[in-house]
């Protein structure tokens, strides 16, 4: 393990909870942010109506480990792809894991994972599992 990696493991996991696109429903995003904070993570919430470019720029600036996208409008495939592409453009595809939460069918769950989304949280995902599953992504990364 390199020194650099050791330093990263020591710090608290940083998560950017993001609302992408025009959908204004942020109840889930706020509950998720609250839950991850309670689990000891550092959580930044973007606020509403961000573009993929805004979100990735914020993620890189804030040096987060994970971007959590909350999408309830049904546009999750297009919007998640935009974020993955933007991460690739910024060369941060390997450093930052992308997870998606929202009203997502089993079919789209599989498609998202194939695209490179690390975790998908459907409606009623147990809150207790949220932080461990996010943490597992960060630990697996290191």
């Amino acid at each position: 393990m390199s020194l650099d990696a050791t330093n990263r493991t020591d710090r608290r996991t940083r998560v950017l909870v993001a609302k992408l696109g025009l959908d204004g429903h942020d109840r889930g995003a706020k509950v998720v942010a609250h839950t991850l904070r309670d689990a000891g993570m550092e959580v930044i919430y973007t606020g509403l109506r961000r573009t993929a470019r805004d979100v990735v720029a914020m993620a890189v600036d804030e040096d987060v480990d994970v971007i959590g996208l909350s999408i309830l409008s049904g546009a999750h495939l297009a919007l998640a792809q935009q974020v993955l592409d933007e991460l690739a453009v910024r060369g941060a595809r390997d450093e930052i894991a992308v997870v998606v939460g929202g009203t997502i069918s089993a079919t789209d769950d599989a498609v998202l994972r194939q695209m490179g989304v690390a975790e998908v949280f459907g409606v009623r995902s147990p809150l207790a599992e949220l932080a461990p599953r996010v943490q597992a992504l960060v630990s697996a990364d290191r």
Partner: peptide, 20 residues
């Protein structure tokens, strides 16, 4: 959603949401 936030359907941010 584009109609609700005042974007025409040909606005770049509106395209994935048009008619959804």
């Amino acid at each position: 959603l584009p109609t609700q936030v005042g974007m025409d359907s040909d606005h770049p941010e509106a395209v994935p949401e048009a008619g959804r």
